Computed example of a mutant assay.
Amino acid sequence: MSQRPGRLRRLLVRVINDENVDLYILAMVAVAFTALGASGLSDVKTLSSVVLALLAWLALSQIKSRRQLDELGKAQRGNPTTLLKSEFPADLISRRAASFDMLVIGLTMTRTVQGLTTDFPAILAAGGRIRVLVPDPHDEALMETADRRMAHSMGAGRVKQRILTTLEDLATIQARNEGRLEVRVLSTIPSAGFNCLDVTSPRGLICVQHYEFQPRREAGPIMTFTAQDGPWFHHFVAEAERMWEAATPVPAIEETAPTPGEGVGAA
C-alpha cells in the first residue's frame, strides 16, 4: 500500500511535465461532456459553451505547436556563418600530415606540396596513398583562366611555372620514396579546391574552397564537412573523385609536352 501513493505521484508528475498534457486534458473534457450530452445530464447551452471553450483551447494548442515547429526549423537551418568560412580550418595542416589517404586538388598546389615535403614520405612509408590534381600547365588558355582565379594576378606564365615546380617537387618525392603517390592534370579549371582526407573512414574530412573570379583576397567561402554530415560530405567527395577520374596521369602529359622552341610563343 505504501508504494501506491509514490507511483501515483510519479505518474502525476510525468503527465504534468508531458508536452502534450494540454491535449490530454482537452480530450478528457471532450469525452466527458460528450457523455453528459448523450445521457441528457447537460443542456444544450452548457454544451455549446464547452464546445467553444474546447475550440479555443485547441487553437492555442495549434499556435504552440506551430511555434515549436518554427523553432525546430530555425535550429535545423542554423547560421550560415557556421558553415561558410573565410579561412581554412586551423587544424587542416595537422590533419593532412596525419592522414593515410589524401586527395588534394587546386590551382597550383605550391603551398600545399611545399608544406608537406616532410610529411609525404612518412605517409608513403606507412603504406598510405597520396593523390594530387592540378590544371594542365601546358594548356596556355587554361593558364590564363587559372590566373583569373588567383587572389593576386601573376600572369599565365608564372602560373604555369608554379604548377611545373609543383610537378617537379612531386616527381622528386616520388623518385626518393616508395609508395602510392599519384599525380594527374586536368584539362579544365577545378570547380573548387579540395582537401579530401581519409574520406572512406569514419574520421573522414573534406575541405572545399570555392574559387572566385578575380578575388581580392583568399577565395571563398571555405567549407568543411565530416563523414557525420552525410549527403553533402558524400556529394563533394563524389565530385572530387569525378575530376580525378577525368584527369590525365602526369607521365602521359610529359610525354606529349611541347619541346623547347615549340608551341605558343615559339619563334
Rank of each mutant, 00 (worst) to 15 (best):
G73F: 04
R129A: 11
R66T: 04
L60E: 07
A75Y: 10
T117Q: 15
G115Q: 07
F100G: 12
E87N: 12
S39I: 07
T108H: 06
A90L: 14
L52G: 10
G127V: 00
A75K: 11
D91I: 00
G37M: 00
V51E: 05
L116Q: 01
A59P: 12
R67W: 05
D119F: 08
Q62S: 08
L54G: 02
A38S: 11
P89C: 05
V51M: 06
P89K: 06
I105C: 01
T110A: 15
A97K: 06
R77F: 13
R66W: 04
A30W: 01
V113N: 01
V132N: 04
G128N: 01
W57Y: 01
T81W: 14
T34Q: 11
L83M: 12
R66E: 00
R67L: 07
L47E: 04
R77I: 13
L41P: 00
T118G: 15
V132I: 11
R129M: 09
L36M: 05
Q62D: 06
L58N: 10
I123Q: 07
L107S: 02
D91E: 08
G115V: 07
K74G: 11
L116V: 01
T81C: 15
V29F: 08
P121K: 06
T118R: 14
I63T: 01
V104C: 05
V44A: 13
A32V: 00
T34Y: 00
V44T: 11
G128C: 08
S49M: 12
W57M: 07
S99I: 02
G115L: 03
L36Y: 00
L47C: 05
F33W: 05
D136G: 10
R129D: 08
S99N: 02
R96S: 06
V50R: 04
T117A: 15
A126K: 08
R111S: 15
V104G: 02
L72V: 10
F33D: 10
L58F: 10
L55T: 11
D101L: 11
G78Q: 12
P137G: 07
L69D: 14
D70H: 10
P135G: 00
S48K: 00
E71D: 14
A98R: 12
L69K: 14
T34I: 09
I105N: 01
L133V: 04
A125C: 03
L133F: 07
M102A: 14
A98Q: 11
A30S: 08
E87K: 11
L60V: 10
V44R: 14
N79C: 13
T112D: 01
L36Q: 05
V31L: 04
K45Q: 13
K85M: 10
R111F: 15
V134E: 03
F33S: 08
